[in-house]
């Protein structure tokens, strides 16, 4: 009896805490002016309105398009760039400080320049997302490809593997789990890039939904959109984590 209660205690507290959060939200909605904050039920009804009039769906589609294309391009460039840098030590040594610099700098600072170069096209937003997302993938891939167990390479060579097979059967499979760690980190950064691009370039998608409703003091819609972004981000990062864990099984044998 006490064992089963102990196991239930945690989730129960979590539920209670979420309920308390919703209650507090609802209460604050009654005391704070509507232009600044609205209650939980009002937010949910705003959310329902956004769903039924199709605005949310359109915004989600626009945002996810930018996000997905950006992440895909980040992966392709980051992964192959990382492999290339691992294969050519001189290239790696030459570029390493610049990669680190781009990774460390706040990429948002470059958005105005991208605006001037590419204007208000979808392309500009994708470039911003790539600028945010590419570095973790590149760095993790590079680290993975450099850490390939030398014994594996020796065995492959002693079986007269040629360069192509060596890459296809040893180095790339070995590196993928690392790249997936990069993808997981990159997902969070791409989301930041996506929202920043939607705020600072031509507004579109979820970012536009927030800005537009903030300007009109439709606080319920703002809160509903933030809630959607939170759920979306949690799901996407969950997918990233699942991918990472799936590929991490390959690493377990080493």
């Amino acid at each position: 009896m006490s064992v089963s209660f102990d196991r239930l205690r945690g989730p129960l507290i979590a539920l209670l805490s979420l309920a308390a959060g919703a209650a507090l939200w609802q209460y604050l909605g009654t005391t704070i002016p509507k232009t600044e904050f609205v209650g939980f039920t009002a937010t949910i009804s705003s959310l329902w309105d956004l769903i039924t009039n199709g605005e949310l769906f359109t915004a989600l589609k626009e945002s996810m398009e930018v996000f997905a294309i950006g992440l895909a391009i980040s992966f392709v460039i980051g992964f192959f760039g990382g492999l290339l840098m691992a294969r050519l030590p001189r290239l790696r040594i030459a570029l390493e400080p610049y990669v680190a610099a781009f990774y460390a700098m706040p990429g948002v600072a470059l958005i105005p320049f991208i605006l001037a170069l590419f204007g208000f096209l979808v392309k500009a937003k994708v470039i911003v997302v790539v600028l945010f997302g590419i570095w973790p993938i590149l760095i993790n891939t590079l680290e993975g490809a450099r850490s390939v167990n030398p014994e594996l390479l020796e065995v492959a060579k002693s079986y007269r593997s040629n360069e192509r097979r060596l890459w296809l059967h040893v180095i790339i499979p070995y590196t993928l789990p690392y790249a997936m760690t990069g993808v997981r980190q990159s997902i969070a950064r791409c989301l930041v890039g996506m929202i920043a691009a939607e705020f600072l370039l031509s507004s579109s998608g979820l970012g536009d939904l927030i800005i537009r409703n903030t300007e009109r003091f439709q606080t319920g819609n703002v809160l509903a959109t933030v809630l959607v972004i939170m759920i979306l981000a949690t799901i996407l990062i969950g997918i990233g984590r699942a991918l990472e864990n799936y590929f991490a099984r390959w690493r377990a044998g080493e």
Binding site: A14, S17, L18, G21, T35, E36, F37, A188, L191, V192, M194, I195, A196, F199, L206, G207, I210, I211, T214, F217, T219, V222, L223, V226, I229, M230, I231, A233, T234, L236, I237
Partner: peptide, 20 residues
Amino acid sequence: YYVGALFAMPVIAILPLMTL
């Protein structure tokens, strides 16, 4: 769950809310 969900979200998304 609060901390996890907020961590996942791009924080700048709530910037307009802060201006309100």
